[in-house]
């Protein structure tokens, strides 16, 4: 049996301590150890973006980060986007624009779009496409996702959350 490591991190604003297998990726730790199932596994090798999370504010694929690496870090997952019973604008515009079909890639897209809008509150379509290029969606052809992100940027309270 491999050894276990105690990891302390702030996850979605909550100080959290968990026991990780030394081989656990952050994705495995989030899902299997912490029950945060919103972060999805699509490829487990960094190619699809379904497990995108923010690690100290930086957009990363959780499958490419070891769980032990996040000790002392701040993490935001899709579960941490909405605050106080309120969706953030990009969650709202995904719903209003029909920007998801099966929904499996949606958490990753939302986290990536959230990161984009924090960095560039008024992005161009080209910037949106660039920031979301690490996220694969097979259902939508991206059209309504791009529109939803641009719509979200037009909402004044974009900085909240």
């Amino acid at each position: 049996m491999s050894s276990r490591i105690i990891v302390s991190a702030e996850i979605n604003g909550e100080p959290t301590e968990f026991l990780a297998d030394e081989r656990d990726s952050l994705l495995e730790a989030l899902r299997d150890r912490l029950g945060l199932m919103g972060t999805k596994e699509g490829c487990n090798n960094g190619n699809c973006g379904a497990c995108a999370v923010l690690l100290d504010g930086r957009l990363v694929n959780a499958c490419l980060v070891m769980a032990a690496e996040v000790d002392g870090a701040q993490l935001t997952t899709v579960e941490g986007l909405a605050r106080e019973d309120r969706l953030v604008p990009v969650q709202e515009t995904f719903l209003e624009r029909g920007a998801l079909q099966c929904g499996i890639c949606t958490p990753g897209f939302l986290v990536a779009a959230h990161a984009l809008l924090q960095e560039h509150p008024r992005p161009t379509e080209e910037q949106v496409r660039y920031w979301l290029a690490g996220n694969l969606c097979r259902c939508t052809g991206y059209d309504k996702i791009i529109t939803a992100v641009l719509d979200a940027a037009d909402r004044t309270d974009v900085a909240s959350g």
Binding site: M37, G38, K40, E79, L87, F94, L95, L100, G103
Partner: peptide, 13 residues
């Protein structure tokens, strides 16, 4: 929709 933009929807895995 709400469950699918908040990560709450339960998929097979």
């Amino acid at each position: 929709g709400t469950d699918k933009v908040t990560g709450r929807a339960n998929y097979g895995s």
